[in-house]
Design a protein around this nucleic acid. Structure first.
Length: 605
DNA sequence: GTTAGGG
DNA sequence: CCCTAAC
């Protein structure tokens, strides 16, 4: 007779058994969240500015464009998935899922730009933009899949992602008040924040110890901003911008998959970024950077070029969600898809008169970009593939270019890209990467003149580049082998539907909690996206969910009936560990779960 | 390749 | 959902 461990679930109903677990190796923690697509977009604008702007920029600031909501043009295709439900157990499965193809996003002008004359004056789509009130608006209508249609600028590089900028970042000579920025950003919350609660913002914030002054801005937006100020983001951006020193050996696409803000942290993606470009520019971006776009030039300063990238247009996204999914989850899915697409690695291309400018060392004037005429024909492209970045130090850990096609393998929500367009630039010009990267080894400019005069804000809130960068370097030792190329994408989250939960519960009732492989085979064999580990994890959360009060539960509510069964099964199998595992499901057909539960407190069986 | 748990 | 340890 084997004495079983007494379950400590007697009073609380149940709980996980306290099984001592072998110490696990200390894993390095890297505060690193998936680079958000928007970051990149924002950084693009920042880079543009930093490269264009003259040093006299002392009153520059970027206005955040607010996009209350972005309309999505979604093609929907119903993909009936014939349910080969068999498995004898009549375990029901999702009848079918809907596949959505997101073609584009648009961000209606909600008037938020009243203080940014630049973008307001015009919203031209294609090149050949008219000039008005001195503002030169350059167009960057890069699009691959129809819509605006590729224009001359785009011809050369057919591989352009087709991302257009539109009012995602605007340059303005006017310094925006915090509240202003705050307000604009705040409204973005519902659209871009993937997670459900905002609590973690605070956690992250505290982790990065921002100045108390900055804390005066307590809005969620600011918190997000603070969050974005974390060194990891800077590091990422620096890399994205190609400013990292080659010897730094930081991989451009370095992304740590694991977040460390608590359980289920992965669900809480925050997408607000506030960036201060390496030079003198300050960039505040909303996350709504996706839609079509154009670039504007401000007139005021001679010898300087100011641009406003107005929007992005994303290539087609293939999204698959169960029909039972909520609108919220759909939004998150789309958000993730976009993130995956852009964070997977993008590069910026500069086109003048349709010709790609590859020499990053050239000045704008040398390239002729600064001239009015060319400005009119200035274009930018976002291309898939790792942003130009130094190669990693660890030779044994080769930098594997991100291949968007690999992403889709892990996620149905991954963007669908034309394989043939991948890495065109790199492939065609192998040396291009090296050239561009290793030529910009100059550290960031140290001047932080622009924003520091900002009265009510702590300088640190503005993220002085030097220190933060240093911090970033400190936090993540560059030599630390990037371990796995960090290229793998986290799978998109796919909440279990009630139907799936039911199937899982039933399977566990019959098979127990130690045979996940069998559970998978029995009830989720056709659900390719559900691994047995997923099922195990789901069960874990189900048990937890069932143990907490309904008020504490989140997400699509699971019928109490199911939760009851979860507890019952949990209790039963806790006491019958492995004992019946050899038996078939039939052996438990008439399993008296209630009795089993009642016996939970028993010390032995 | 699975299972079990921590993150 | 990811990552590991331990089978």
């Amino acid at each position: 007779m084997v004495f079983k461990r007494k379950l400590d679930c007697v009073s609380v109903g149940f709980d996980y058994p306290n099984i001592p677990k072998a110490p696990r190796s200390c894993r390095r923690k890297v505060i690193n969240k998936r680079t958000d697509a928007m970051d990149l977009l924002a950084s693009l604008a920042g880079k543009l500015l930093e490269e264009c702007e003259s040093s006299s920029a002392s009153s520059n600031a970027f206005e955040v464009n607010n996009h209350e909501s972005f309309g999505k043009e979604i093609k929907q295709e119903d993909h009936l998935k014939s349910e080969s439900s068999d498995q004898g157990n009549s375990v029901s499965r999702p009848a079918y899922e809907k596949t959505c193809v997101v073609n584009s996003f648009s961000f209606p002008d909600d008037g938020i730009l009243e203080r940014t004359p630049v973008s307001e004056t015009k919203n031209v789509k294609c090149e050949g933009v008219a000039e008005e009130t001195g503002d030169v608006i350059v167009n960057t209508g890069f699009e691959r899949d129809g819509g605006l249609g590729a224009d001359a600028c785009n011809l050369e590089d057919a591989t352009a992602l087709g991302v257009q900028f539109q009012k995602s970042v605007c340059v303005d000579g006017d310094l925006k008040s915090p509240s202003r920025v705050n307000g604009s950003l705040a409204r973005q919350g519902n659209h871009t924040k993937l997670g459900r609660d905002d609590d973690d913002d605070e956690k992250l914030y505290s982790y990065h110890k921002f100045s108390s002054k900055f804390k005066s801005y307590r809005s969620p937006t600011i918190r997000r901003i603070r969050k974005s100020l974390s060194s990891k983001y800077w590091k990422q951006m620096a890399k994205d911008l190609g400013h990292y020193r080659a010897d730094a050996g930081v991989k451009a696409l370095y992304r740590k998959r694991k977040s460390c803000y608590g359980y289920n942290a992965w669900q809480r993606e925050t997408n607000y970024k506030r960036r201060r470009s390496p030079d003198r520019s300050s960039v505040v971006t909303s996350e709504g950077g996706l839609s079509s776009g154009s670039v504007s030039k401000l007139p005021e300063k001679r010898d300087s070029v100011k641009l406003s990238i107005k929007s992005f247009r994303i290539p087609e996204l293939f999204i698959e969600v169960p029909e039972t999914a909520t609108v919220g989850s759909l939004k998150r899915t789309v958000m993730e898809a976009v993130s995956v697409l852009l964070s997977g690695g993008i590069r910026v291309g500069v086109l003048v008169h349709g010709k790609k400018i590859r020499d990053d060392k050239k000045t704008l004037s040398q390239t002729g970009i600064s001239s009015e005429e060319n400005l009119t024909n200035l274009g930018f492209t976002l291309e898939p593939g790792p942003s130009k970045a130094p190669l990693p130090l660890c030779s044994q850990d080769p930098l594997v270019p991100i291949d968007p096609t690999n992403l889709s393998e892990r996620s149905a929500a991954s963007p669908t890209l034309d394989t043939e367009t991948h890495h065109s630039d790199d492939v065609a010009n192998p040396g291009n990467i090296v050239d561009n990267n290793h030529l910009e080894l100059v550290p960031y400019q140290k001047e932080i003149t622009v924003d520091e005069e900002k009265p009510s804000s702590d300088p640190r809130a503005l993220v002085p580049l030097p220190s933060l960068e240093a911090e970033a370097l400190a936090i993540v030792p560059l030599n630390q082998k990037p371990k796995r190329t960090e290229l793998a994408q986290r799978r998109t989250r796919r909440p279990f539907s009630v139907t799936e939960v039911e199937a899982l519960v039933q399977a566990v009732e019959e098979l127990g909690t130690g045979r996940w492989r069998d559970v998978k085979l029995r009830a989720f064999e056709d659900a390719d996206h559900r691994t047995y580990v997923d099922l195990k994890d789901k069960w874990k959360t189900l048990v937890h969910t069932a143990s907490i009060s309904p008020q504490q539960r989140r997400g699509e509510p699971v019928p109490q009936e199911l939760l009851d069964r979860v507890l019952r099964a949990y209790g039963y199998w806790s006491q019958h560990q492995g004992k019946h595992q050899g038996r078939g499901a039939a052996a438990h057909k008439d399993l008296d779960m209630n009795r089993g539960r009642a016996l939970e407190s028993g010390v032995s069986v």
